[in-house]
Computed example of a mutant assay.
Amino acid sequence: MTATSAGAEAMDGIYRYQRHIYDLTRRYYLLGRNELITMLQPPAGGSVLEIGCGTARNLVLAARRYPDARFFGLDISAEMLKSAEATLRNHGLEARVTLAQGDATRFDARALFGQPKFDRVFCSYSLSMIPGWEAALREAGKSVGPGGELHVVDFGGQADLPDWFGRGLRNWLARFHVTPRQRLQDAMSAMASETGGTLSFRSIYKDYARLGSIRLTA
């Protein structure tokens, strides 16, 4: 069994049943997702790729907000993609959003989607679920075209929240194989330096979550 197939099997095992209640339960603690969607601002006719699209909740909101853009979603879990396809059909968006199964740490965007680069690429609470998150971040960055942007939102370190809250949250997240990436800012800063991009990074909700973006030069 390859690492990719093993990862897909693991995610399918987690979400085979959870996918049916995922959006209902996650809405209360995956904070900052709507802020990220507001920040995207793709150009008219532009392309947007979500890495780890899950149930397509974010893609639906983004497609409604930016009706002139084209959207793409990548996820390793076939089970989650079943929910994503159903969600898109229910909202009449299947013609505007293309989904594909793939490993975020190594994927061929041209083979999967018919194009190698995108105007906007984003990761919403997906890096904290990917064991090789730094490789996934690099792959996401490689998928951004000239003048494009990479956006990330994920769990922070809860530095400004009570210690008991942070410990409880991390213990609870571990049950779902979720690990906050404390080095996210460092990794994005290094990527910005390597690519000549401009980094914006901030904590939100008392460091409950962190929002980062890199804008590449045209």
Rank of each mutant, 00 (worst) to 15 (best):
G102S: 04
L199A: 00
L24Y: 13
D23W: 12
T98N: 06
T25G: 04
L59W: 11
Y15A: 04
L127S: 10
Y15E: 04
A86M: 15
A209N: 14
R33T: 13
V48M: 11
A6W: 03
T2S: 10
A209Y: 12
L99P: 03
Q185T: 13
M11I: 05
K82Y: 09
Y125V: 08
R138I: 13
G13M: 05
G46F: 00
A78Y: 06
A10T: 00
V144M: 09
E85V: 01
L49N: 08
N58P: 01
G54H: 05
T55Y: 04
A69I: 14
P146F: 11
W172C: 02
E9W: 10
R70P: 02
A140L: 03
F165V: 14
L31P: 00
M39T: 05
L216N: 13
L88I: 08
L150C: 05
E85R: 13
E85W: 06
R120W: 08
M1D: 01
L49K: 06
E85H: 08
T2W: 05
S213Y: 02
L211D: 08
G148T: 05
R175V: 13
A218C: 14
D119W: 11
V97S: 00
Y66R: 14
R138W: 13
N90C: 13
F176I: 03
L211R: 12
Q158I: 15
E194C: 12
P180G: 05
L24H: 12
I37G: 08
R183Q: 15
R106W: 00
G52Y: 05
T179I: 15
A95Q: 07
L36T: 10
G102L: 00
K117H: 09
L81F: 02
P42S: 07
A174M: 06
I14G: 11
Q182K: 13
R110V: 13
V48R: 03
R33F: 12
L31W: 06
R170N: 12
N34C: 10
A44P: 11
G13F: 09
F72R: 07
H177R: 15
A84Y: 11
R65W: 09
G54W: 08
K82L: 12
S200T: 14
V152N: 07
F72Q: 07
F122G: 02
S193V: 12
M191A: 14
Q101I: 11
M1F: 12
L184G: 06
T4A: 12
V97E: 02
D186H: 15
T179Y: 13
S189A: 15
R89L: 11
A63L: 07
T195D: 04
A3P: 02
D108G: 06
M1W: 07
T38Q: 14
L88E: 03
M129L: 15
S77G: 01
P43T: 03
F118M: 08
A111Q: 14
L161T: 06
V48Q: 10
E9N: 08
F107D: 02
A62W: 07
N171M: 05
Y125P: 02
E35P: 10
E134C: 09
L199R: 01
S47E: 14
R181F: 12
G157F: 03
Y17A: 15
Q41W: 02
L199K: 04
G45F: 07
L30C: 01
D12P: 06
G114A: 04
D68S: 13
A8K: 00
Y17C: 13
G145E: 12
S124Q: 04
L150P: 03
G102K: 05
S203I: 09
E35V: 14
A6K: 06
D12S: 01
Y66N: 13
R26Q: 09
H20Q: 09
G141S: 02
Y205H: 10
